[in-house]
Computed example of a mutant assay.
Amino acid sequence: MPGRLTELLTLAFGPHILIEQEFDTLPGGDAVAIFGSWASRYLGEPGPPPNDVDVMVVGRLSRTDVYEAAERVEQRLRIPVNPVLITPERWTQATDPLVEQIRSTPLVWIKRPPGEDT
């Protein structure tokens, strides 16, 4: 169980802050969220400390830009950052298995998709 100082540092300077700095301004990005084990721990689900950070980016972006942003965050965090690029159409399709999987897990939104308030 992390100590109070670790929790405070994670909230103040954790991956969500760095991901916002690197991903939120990418041209063509409609939405950015952290999912997977880091999001689960951040939102209070018990489990082992995460070994990586999974980032979903919705939009029409350059794959190169997304991976370069992930690499910059990875260098600062010193843990792997795994980006997943999803088109807006794919995000709204109810039948896409990857989208269903991501939607069924805890999400820490950095930037919500247009029209999604909660």
Rank of each mutant, 00 (worst) to 15 (best):
S104Q: 05
Q21N: 11
A12E: 10
L85V: 15
R41V: 02
P113F: 00
P83T: 07
E22N: 06
G47Y: 00
N82S: 15
L8I: 14
A70V: 04
E100T: 15
P49E: 02
I86V: 13
V108L: 07
L43M: 03
R41D: 02
R76F: 07
V55S: 00
R90T: 14
L77G: 03
A69V: 00
R72N: 08
R112Q: 05
V81Q: 00
R60A: 12
V108C: 09
F13C: 14
R41Y: 01
P50S: 04
E74G: 03
D65A: 08
E22K: 07
V84G: 10
R60E: 15
H16F: 11
E74R: 04
T105V: 13
K111E: 07
P46A: 07
T10H: 13
S37F: 03
A33P: 04
E71D: 14
P50Y: 03
P88M: 11
L85N: 14
V55F: 02
L61E: 10
L18N: 00
A31L: 04
W91H: 09
W109Q: 07
E116V: 07
T118E: 15
E20F: 13
P15H: 03
I102Q: 05
R63I: 15
V84Q: 08
P49V: 03
W38S: 04
Y42I: 02
R72D: 08
E71V: 12
D30I: 14
I79H: 02
S37K: 01
R78V: 15
L77S: 06
A69M: 02
R60D: 13
L107Q: 07
M1L: 08
V55D: 01
S104N: 06
T105R: 12
E71P: 09
T64A: 14
R4Y: 13
A70F: 01
I102D: 04
G44C: 04
L43D: 01
S37N: 04
R103G: 05
G28C: 05
R4M: 13
V58D: 01
Q75A: 15
A70I: 02
G3P: 01
T87E: 12
I102M: 11
L85E: 11
V108A: 06
R72Q: 09
L11K: 14
V55A: 01
A12L: 11
M1C: 09
G14V: 06
A39R: 01
L61W: 03
G14M: 06
Y67A: 10
W109N: 06
H16A: 06
L61H: 07
